[in-house]
Amino acid sequence: MNLKQLARMLDLSQTTVSRALNGYPEVSEETRRRVSDAARQHGYRPNPSARRLATGKAGMIGYVMPTGASVDIDPHFVEFLSGLGDYVRAHELDLVLSPAEADDEETTYRRIVANKLVDALYISAPRHADSRIALVQDLGIPYIVHGRSEGLDFDYPFLDIDNEAAFHDATRLMVQLGHKRVALLNGEEAQTFAICRERGVRRALEASGLVLPPAMLRSVAMTEENGYRATRSLLMQSEAPTAIVCSSLIMALGVVRAARDLGRSIPRDLSLIAHDDVFPWLKPENFSVPLTTTRSSIRAAGQRIAERLAARIAGQEAGALGEVWPVDLIVRSSIAGAPA
Rank of each mutant, 00 (worst) to 15 (best):
K4T: 09
M9C: 09
D11L: 13
Q14K: 15
T15F: 13
S18Q: 02
S18W: 03
R19S: 03
L21D: 01
G23C: 11
S28N: 03
S28T: 05
V35K: 00
S36H: 12
A38Q: 08
N47G: 06
S49E: 11
R51D: 03
L53D: 05
L53A: 07
G56D: 10
G59Y: 04
M60C: 11
M60H: 07
I61Q: 06
Y63S: 02
Y63V: 02
V64R: 02
V64P: 00
M65Y: 15
M65F: 15
P66V: 03
P66R: 12
G68T: 00
G68P: 00
S70G: 05
V71H: 06
P75K: 03
E79N: 04
E79P: 00
L84M: 12
G85H: 08
V88P: 00
R89Y: 15
A90D: 14
H91E: 05
H91G: 00
E92P: 02
L93H: 04
E101A: 14
D104N: 08
T108D: 02
A114Q: 13
N115T: 14
K116Y: 08
V118H: 10
A120P: 01
A120V: 12
H128G: 07
A129S: 15
A129L: 14
A129Q: 14
A134M: 06
D138V: 11
D138Y: 11
Y143S: 01
I144F: 11
E150T: 13
G151E: 05
L152I: 05
D153S: 10
D155I: 12
D160S: 14
D162F: 08
N163L: 12
A165Y: 15
A166R: 00
H168E: 09
H168K: 10
D169Q: 09
D169P: 04
M174L: 06
V175T: 04
K180A: 11
V182T: 01
A183C: 06
N186P: 08
G187M: 04
E189T: 10
F193N: 02
F193V: 02
A194P: 01
E198M: 14
G200D: 10
R203Y: 13
G209Y: 01
L210F: 13
P213K: 11
P214W: 04
S219L: 11
A221D: 15
E224T: 15
E224G: 15
E224K: 15
N226A: 12
N226R: 04
G227E: 04
A230T: 05
M236V: 10
M236Q: 12
V245F: 10
L249E: 10
I250A: 02
I250M: 09
I250W: 06
M251W: 05
M251H: 04
V256D: 06
A259V: 07
D261W: 08
L262N: 04
S271Q: 09
L272M: 09
H275R: 05
H275Q: 14
F279T: 01
W281I: 07
W281Q: 07
W281S: 04
K283Y: 11
F287W: 07
P290F: 10
T293R: 01
R295A: 04
S296I: 10
A300H: 02
G302C: 00
G302H: 01
G302N: 00
R304Q: 14
I305C: 01
L309G: 00
L309D: 02
L309C: 03
A311G: 13
Q316H: 13
Q316I: 06
G319Y: 09
G319N: 08
L321N: 10
E323F: 08
P326Y: 08
P326T: 09
V327L: 03
L329K: 03
V331G: 05
